[in-house]
Design a protein around this nucleic acid. Structure first.
Lengths: 229, 229
DNA sequence: GATGAATGTTACGCGTCGATGACATGGGTC
DNA sequence: GACCCATGTCATCGACGCGTAACATTCATC
């Protein structure tokens, strides 16, 4: 579950500092001091994201980004560029090379971590638009709608909120209390068993599309939304 | 056909970076550091879209959004809010002010550009001629007329504005408050229930063509114009 | 296979929300 | 000033959704 980040940066102190911050944020940090080392590291194990310093000895960060984009192995991996101030001209080329984001030096580690998370979030299918697609279901926040394939699914308000929470937090068990907190809101108090009923109603609304299996019972613990049965 | 985007953001580095990304995406970027500068820029030339930072010195972004919604000049201009990590609260308040979308910081420039394009596409719908065709209905802005197929539809002024807003913002729920902001204009005060009545009247005018289904109720939330039932 | 606990399922009453029709007001036109 | 059209508000009715309880079923454990 830990995200693997490859840091490509020639200055050891900066590299170490970033690695430390990332580990503290629950990520795995790999390190490379130049383009060659980076490509070797990638060949060995493809990271989830690459932090790329613009100024590298030998092959520049920009050039490396271009190469990575061409290779099958690394094409899909998001890249964040670390640029110094006043390197604006290079940003043009960076955007052309398909870089996902920039962080301008000097930056706080907190900002860097936040940017990494944002890019990771987006590369995982959450484009921030409030539309989530999962397991044959599509839930559209702005439209307040649910689609199974292309057919709209008639759904009640509470079932909608429940499904929305599930689809934005899939593959994880939630107790009834947790569901009440997240879906109903912490300030209301209702019976725990009420959750069961709404789970039932949610399953019923998904039944016509045979998608009720997505909502799974974890006996003794709670419920889970999962695309694998 | 370059779209003109006004960036209202106090932090220069962020503003510059956004402006750069927008220019790269073929848009014209105007900049303003605070609410006053923004209003001056708008007075000079109305942009196609406004990027509005939530946290502004002096007049807050939210407050500015409210003001812009009230003024005739800027009422039609879509607004995208840039919000800090603050969560649901910001979303709700932003939506109340008639904001079209929001992007949570930190965001990647690519994500931002994608969202801008999405909003522009949505709030345009037309090819620039002011004519929108959707779900068997055609609304002609310049001619101020509505057609169902080839037949003209007799329609009242408020119903016309309501329908026009819906057809330029389809597939999305709007609360009564939002509809009041967008259709009535923020400066008038009327009961929320009034929206219900005009929804009713709009449906009635569309009924002879069986197009009243396009106007859909989302219980507990608001109304939506959608071509899929 | 018996037992108790956890979960599934159904039915029902209450409260809330939206739909609807009627009415009053205001503004424009002749 | 008389008339008409558009608009906003109100009261009422009906529908919908919610939470709870009661009963049925499944599961784990011995």
């Amino acid at each position: 579950m830990h995200k693997r980040i490859l840091i490509v940066e020639d200055e050891t102190s900066i590299r170490e500092m970033i690695a430390f911050a990332l580990r503290k944020a629950g990520m795995d940090a790999m390190q490379a001091a130049d383009a060659r080392a980076a490509q070797m590291a990638i060949a060995e194990q493809v990271p989830d994201l690459i932090l790329l310093d613009w100024m590298l000895p030998g092959t520049s960060g920009l050039e490396l980004a271009r190469r990575l984009r061409k290779e099958e192995l690394s094409r899909e991996v998001p890249i964040i560029m670390l640029t110094a101030r006043g390197e604006e001209m290079d940003r043009v080329n960076g955007l052309e090379a398909g870089v996902d984001d920039y962080v301008v030096k000097p930056f706080s580690t907190r900002e860097l971590v936040a940017r990494i998370k944002a890019v990771l979030r987006r590369s995982q299918g959450d484009d921030g638009s409030g539309v989530v697609e999962l397991g044959g279901l599509r839930i559209d926040g702005p439209a307040h709608r649910v689609f199974a394939g292309d057919e709209p699914v008639p759904i009640g308000p509470t079932e909608y909120r429940l499904l929305y929470f599930f689809m934005t937090h899939p593959e994880r068990v939630y107790s009834r209390t947790q569901l009440l907190d997240h879906v109903w809101g912490g300030s209301v108090y209702v019976e725990e068993r009420t959750v069961d009923v709404h789970i039932r109603r949610l399953r019923k609304t998904l039944e016509p599309w045979k998608l009720d299996e997505l909502v799974q019972t974890v006996r003794g613990t709670g419920y889970r939304f999962s695309t694998s049965i």
